[in-house]
Write a protein that binds this DNA or RNA. Structure first.
Lengths: 227, 227
DNA sequence: ATAATAGTGTCTATAAGACACTATGAC
DNA sequence: GTCATAGTGTCTTATAGACACTATTAT
């Protein structure tokens, strides 16, 4: 056991994406000796001269095949001295929330890394290594809360998207239906949330205006959930 | 230099209080070899079998004399490998936001610990050890943001308080004046934010109803700042 | 009485929500 | 034409802000 604050520091990532309007999280089967064979969040120890953020990006690339278009933000740090009973050493984990569009490269059948994308509801019923179930719960709750006050929803979408797709993010993450007409007006009334590209995308009905994320990161006024 | 994720883990605390309607932060003169003599946030390395949260509470008690009535929440973890140039070892800091009422015991003249309470504006102009100025900025910004969506404002007040005092917290932390009449109505309309104690407190004018914090930790709807 | 602070009434402007309606494509 | 989805109009209700007013104390 290490002394006087010494610990091994890891980054663990709650990587979320939407697939067919269902929120999914990236999980890996652990190969390392500690908790081997168990499902866990992608993550690992920091390398020398690497920040926790850089480690999170590296683990996302190595274990989940996510290299581009990932939004990463810090979630919390988990430091209970008994949180990792499989290591002799003390382990402190910096948890990150990563959001990505459901890129074709991450679909089943293509080799996108060692991770599986699992519906969040399924993952939360599963036994996960260490305290990763709690970290996952915290991550999902953070994502839900941040949709209200920030433009985080666009992080679930590719560079251009339609108003319906944006509304679909809110519906899927919050688990509620939103009125399409009022959502449309509300989003456009929040300056800097979305911009028109001028293009449209044809589908089964009237073509939808293609949008891209605007310059704002926070929503004023916010887009609040019902209570 | 430690390898493979090994680092010394510390908790550093942005402890805020209001004194005469001015936001103050607790700062200490560093005694430890690293950055000795410089002003810094209270903090220190985790003890064995102690979580980062427990370490934060311990440092608050030891260095700032705060033992009771402190609200603590995690801020962020700072892990840049070059953030602490004074240690040979790598240091990762878990930063905490602590809010406390300006207890008589923390006023100058009484020995409340090694910390000084410094106006935040002054502290931000000062050179602080390591990246503590950035941590302080992040802490103040977090406090400002959380007043909108949570009942955090009551953490700056003693167990019972008046509507004017609560409004004073918002005014001081946000740096804006708020209309007393509308604030009063708004606060009472948010279920669970405050409860009437039934007592009043006499002052220079009409006695004010004494309130206590309600059972809610989040505000629905929020109390938004002007933009 | 006057000053001071607490708290209410009320009017107006803005925003949210329900939902009917129009627009534009594929077929 | 029909169907499907995108987007607008409009009415109703709720909320925010300005500010005049009333209430209750100390002096």
């Amino acid at each position: 056991m290490a002394k006087n604050g010494w610990a091994r520091v890891a980054s663990d990532v709650v990587a979320l994406t939407l697939r067919d309007d269902v929120l999914h999280v990236a999980l890996v089967r652990r190969l390392a000796a500690a908790a081997a064979g168990q499902w866990a969040l992608p993550g690992g120890f920091l390398l020398d001269d690497e920040s926790a953020e850089q480690a999170a990006y590296r683990e996302l690339a190595e274990e989940a095949g996510l290299r581009r278009g990932v939004t990463l933000e810090q979630l919390a740090t988990y430091s209970d001295p008994r949180r990792d009973t499989d290591h002799d050493d003390r382990v402190v984990s910096v948890a990150w929330l990563a959001l990505a569009a459901d890129l074709p490269a991450t679909r089943p059948g293509t080799d996108a890394g060692a991770a599986s994308w699992v519906p969040v509801a399924t993952a939360l019923r599963r036994r996960l290594a260490f305290d990763h179930r709690q970290i996952l719960r915290d991550g999902v709750e953070r994502a839900r809360a941040k949709l209200e006050y920030t433009t985080l929803a666009t992080a679930f979408l590719p560079e251009t998207f339609t108003m319906s797709e944006l509304r679909g993010v809110y519906s899927a993450v919050w688990g509620v239906e939103l009125n399409a007409a009022n959502f449309h007006r509300k989003v456009h009334s929040i300056r800097g949330f979305v911009e028109e590209t001028g293009e449209t995308r044809a589908g089964r009905g009237r073509p939808a205006a293609l949008l891209r994320a605007g310059s704002t990161r926070t929503l004023h006024p916010p887009l609040l959930r019902e209570r």
